[in-house]
Simulated scan of single mutants.
Amino acid sequence: MTNPQWHEVDAYVTDLLVPADEALTAALADSAAAGLPEIAVAPNQGKFLNLLAQVQGARRILEIGTLGGYSTIWLARALPADGHLTSLEYDPRHAEVARANLARAGLADRVEVRTGAALDTLPLLEKEAAGPFDLVFVDADKANNPHYVAWALRLSRPGTLIVVDNVVRAGRVAAPDPSDPTITGTRAMFEFVANEPRLDATALQTVGTKGHDGLLIARVTS
């Protein structure tokens, strides 16, 4: 479901507060040219992620789901010069496009894109003591959201911020649908967060160029 006014408001906000950026525009264009699905966050959402990372003072960021690297660029730009972002991408073709986009944005020195199923690469990060991460952004296959959040918690510290995208699903998250793994996975993630005493969380509905959706924000308390 979309609404023309949602687009108008997003365009108004973006024109005023998120000026055009050559590297980000090129990242979207090259992703589309490579046939990647056009499901990257909107520009104002990317700026929101960037501001969250800055407010968090993030030095280590974990992203689960790279796609073409658009959100990765936004997050990595919030890092200090010695900061590092690890992004996990299942599809090698997507990862190749993302690496090129990140290199053009001048961020190749602080971002690593790892390929493979995230549930295979996350245990490797733990073995390598890659964490704790200051911020984790989850934007991958929704069926595995509860597993991704559980791993984000394992790789966190008190004060880590965990952000999960696309949690409202055009409002469908409010009604059980056992035939849709994106709904069952998202609802299981909400239940995991609600029952995890180490997480303090809320979720916000959003409307805009990406339709009716939302995100969950959780802070690790202990």
Rank of each mutant, 00 (worst) to 15 (best):
P123D: 07
L28P: 05
D120M: 01
W74F: 13
D91W: 10
D120V: 04
V167I: 01
A108I: 09
T2Y: 15
A174T: 09
E112S: 14
G116S: 09
V113I: 04
T121R: 08
V18A: 11
A108E: 11
A98L: 12
A103M: 08
L88N: 00
R93S: 14
P181W: 05
A175G: 02
V207G: 11
A29E: 15
I39Y: 10
S71Q: 06
A175P: 04
I64V: 13
Y70K: 03
I162M: 03
V168Y: 09
A105Q: 03
A152V: 03
V41N: 04
A170N: 13
V168D: 07
T160S: 10
V113C: 01
H94N: 15
N166P: 06
P132N: 02
A170I: 03
L215W: 13
N50K: 12
G69N: 02
V173P: 04
R154G: 01
L88K: 00
A81R: 14
I162F: 05
A188V: 00
V97H: 08
S179M: 13
W151M: 01
V173M: 08
N50V: 09
G35V: 06
R99N: 06
D177V: 07
G131C: 05
A129K: 11
A143N: 06
S179N: 12
A29V: 13
D141S: 02
E8R: 15
V173K: 06
P197K: 13
E128L: 11
L102R: 05
R169D: 05
A203H: 08
L67Y: 10
P146V: 00
G214C: 12
N144E: 07
A105N: 04
Q54K: 14
S87D: 14
D15E: 15
A78S: 14
V220F: 02
A105H: 08
H212I: 14
I61N: 10
D30E: 09
R104G: 08
R187I: 01
V18L: 09
T182I: 14
H94E: 03
I183F: 03
A81L: 13
T184G: 02
D180K: 00
R114Q: 05
R187F: 04
E22I: 12
L199A: 05
V220N: 04
P146Q: 02
L24Q: 10
H212P: 11
I64R: 00
A58V: 06
E128A: 15
G46I: 03
Q56Y: 12
Q54T: 12
V136P: 00
V163K: 03
A175T: 15
V136Y: 02
G106V: 07
V111F: 03
G131W: 01
